[in-house]
Design a protein around this nucleic acid. Sequence first.
RNA 1: GGACCCGUAGCCUAGCAUGGAUAAGGCGGCAGCCUCCUAAGCUGCAGAUCGCGGGUUCAAAUCCCGCCGGGUCCGCCA
Length: 556
Amino acid sequence: MFRRFRSDVIESLKKFDVDERFVRESEHADLACTIAFKIAKERGEKPQDVAEEIASQLSIESEYIGSVEVVNGYINFFASLEFLEDTVNFILDSDENYGSLNLGGEVLIEHTSANPDGPLHIGHIRNSIIGDILARMFRKAGIDVTTHYYVNDMGRQIALTVLGIEKFGISNEKPDHAVAKAYIAINRYLEEHPEERDRIERKVEELMKSYEEGDEKTIELFRDVVNRALEGAKETLRNLNISHDEYVWESEFIRNNYVDRIISMLDERGLIRKNGAWTVDLSDLGYEKEVVIRRENGTTLYVTRDLAYHLWKNENFERFINILGSDHKLIANQLSDILKLIGLKPPEIVFFEFVSLPEGSMSTRKGKFISADELIDRVYREAYEIIKNREFSKEEKKDVAKAVAVGALRYDFIRVSPEKPITFDWKKALDFERQTASYIQYSHARACSILRKAVSEGMPDLEFAAELCTPLERKLVMLLSKFSAVVERVVKELRPNIFADYVMDVAMNFNDFYTQHPVLKAETELRMHRLAIVDACRIVLRNGLELLGIEPLERM
RNA sequence: GGACCCGUAGCCUAGCAUGGAUAAGGCGGCAGCCUCCUAAGCUGCAGAUCGCGGGUUCAAAUCCCGCCGGGUCCGCCA
């Protein structure tokens, strides 16, 4: 709805050459236009005078523009009562579809893609959560989404883990944790027995070579490790409300010839230097070192297979987005540039900074990490503590604690912009007394509770009346109208934290409304008006939480 | 050494792309609010030279240059 209002405002300013850059949201108006500053500068006049002149010449045809004011050179637009009314009625009618867009198109989102050498840790899930929420936002925007987990099954660590299991066996715990144990054990062994390094290094190389060449026995060994790790990761992701449409193994691109194809594409254009190893020279683009795409022993590297994967993406999708840790910046940029050199489309990439522990960065290899499983479990127990004395059944207590815990985790990771580094802090992770998902869930539960009570007391009718709006109610409804505008922005800018902020904003304003405006105690007309607002808020909060992958509880 | 990212109240963060109206929210601190729709809530107060120094501009947290502090990357690893 807000998108309509905005385009109507821009339309009214069209003859002054105004585009969306000069029309912005503001605390002083529903939309404020800053074009007068620019024109005043060109003409050497005062912004205020120019603004007044423009305001007197507006061509307002939209019934959604209620009034226009000029203050300090700003041209301030206010939405009309019709706009508020249409907004609330539209929300009530659209219900679960409110906020949807019809942008069309398709997109592939690759996220998580952690090495299958152990459980997902709290750094990986920043990736998963960004990717999952982006996928949900794209779907809401009416874009066809496919999600991929790219499985690095050809890595050195997998070969090492195979040796680790051979030497130390594998434990009975959750399979991804068991894999990590073997991986950590062999690394420690290597550390303690430097004399063994050469021998094990040779075995690793042999294993990698025969895996790449398709040796049955080796394939079995590698698949066993990878499947164990993946099985555990899937369970963790399921607990976080995350699922992938497909798991794509990088070895597939060896077997289906995409690797050969991408190499000959590069070769045909004379981009490969063959001095023992095969390399691509990117020094014209400012890269210091050549990119190696084939080892001297004939095997390929991660980047080679990734190149092949992206050839496949080019053939199958019009848009593809990768979520990557910032440690991949160099290699990902090299990948993009190589793709461009052979006329292929590079991926769109969302980089995120590291999640580190107070004592430093995490390392699966050294066993220095906090697993997502451990985090989920501890946050769950903390949430359970809070509600254990409430009058819920045991089952319901578990469900509520689970929903609150997962919500808190997801919200904590998504609310900060991807480019900010995060230092993990147990105390904060376990603290619910602050701006977090449970605050939003609570607001939603409150709205549900009022509505429930209204029905049980025999007054279920809703009827929004714009002229009855208090300033706070007006502000709330304007906020509600912005849902799809925010969805559009996130999809365009690939910044899901904006949406987390939006939902929080709605929740805060709803809580303000809640404390200041009695609903069920108000007389009939006002009660119906406020019930309509409550229901509209409920819908926005519920749809918003679902987009964030957080369960909208009706009681808590 | 080179490249990229971050630096906003005691703490965590928004705002920076597209420069504009008193720099926004939370935690923590202090003072209050439950005969009333869930107090996982609300109100008020205190708390900021927007890392530092220059520059551009009528106007800079936002753009440019330099510096400082923190992180990441620079493997025939992934």
